[in-house]
């Protein structure tokens, strides 16, 4: 069925898109300025700032470490979050609301407070394992996103389809993989994406737990801004925008996360 979109809606969507996307163009323009400090509008044209960033071992190490950290945190958050969401939505447990409140509490408490509390805890335990500390810290923050999105998709699962499959003789693992999984997959995928992005962008937790050998991109970006406000900062910001776009495109290609499929 072809639905016609009203011109007014098109204009409103266009304006919203402009407001959201236009600021992203600014660092792109500033990153090509051939001046020793950031200026807007840019003066001249050069790609040397991109070359400087990509050739910088500190920048590369931070970027690769952030990728590694975000991937581990996403895997751990999904491994813990999916069963947790299933348990909370499918079973009646004593103190269920309290458990949910506890899991979601990192979204309420300022992250900077969570970070310093974790640092205090790890110091009391005598832990020097920075990567493990960062994984735990980020997972605490990312877990609520996974649980919220997976819980939402589990609640929308049509239980009649499961019953029908069981009545027709499908064993539980077939019901799980053929009936439930297709319905919850977008929710799990969304939780995973949220988790990855929240971990990749995190500053307040990393500020307390990172060290010189485990230095995520947001911390690196801050130190670079402190060092010198030159166009290499805009180049890093632009590369992060390109990376986010690439991530969305890859997810779209590999998993087919299109609006049409989500709606279906």
């Amino acid at each position: 069925m072809n639905e016609t979109v009203s011109p007014l809606l098109k204009i409103v969507v266009g304006i919203i898109l402009l407001i959201v996307v236009a600021p992203l163009v600014v660092p792109l323009l500033m990153s090509i300025s051939d001046t020793p400090f950031i200026v807007f509008p840019p003066q001249g044209f050069t790609l040397k700032w991109y070359g400087a960033v990509l050739a910088n071992p500190e920048a590369r190490a931070s970027f690769l470490f952030s990728l590694e950290l975000a991937a581990i945190v996403t895997a751990v958050s999904l491994a813990l979050g999916v069963p947790c969401a299933a348990g909370l939505t499918r079973f009646k447990l004593p103190g269920q609301d309290a458990i949910l409140g506890l899991i979601l509490s990192p979204l309420i408490v300022p992250l900077i407070v969570t970070g310093v509390a974790l640092l205090q805890l790890f110091a009391m335990l005598g832990s020097r394992a920075t990567l493990l500390q960062l994984v735990i810290g980020h997972t605490v923050v990312c877990l609520p996103y996974v649980i919220r999105s997976v819980s939402a998709s589990l609640l929308l699962v049509n239980r009649n389809l499961e019953d029908a499959a069981s009545v027709l003789g499908a064993p539980p693992h077939i019901v799980a993989t053929r009936v439930i999984w297709p319905q919850v997959r977008p929710g799990i995928l969304a939780g995973g994406i949220f988790s990855f992005i929240v971990s990749f962008d995190d500053y307040p937790i990393s500020m307390w737990l990172a060290d010189g050998n485990h230095f995520p991109v947001p911390l690196y970006l801050y130190t670079v801004i402190e060092r010198s406000f030159d166009p290499s900062i805009a180049a890093i910001a632009s590369l992060m925008i390109f990376f986010a776009l690439l991530l969305v495109l890859v997810i779209e290609k590999v998993f087919g996360l299109s609006l049409a499929r989500l709606a279906s």
């Binding site: 310093v116 640092l119 205090q120 110091a123 009391m124 005598g126 020097r128 500020m207 307390w208």
Partner: peptide
Amino acid sequence: LANVGKMRATKANPK
């Protein structure tokens, strides 16, 4: 301020 905060948080077992 962050560095002082880190010293406070790890006072019991300095890092």
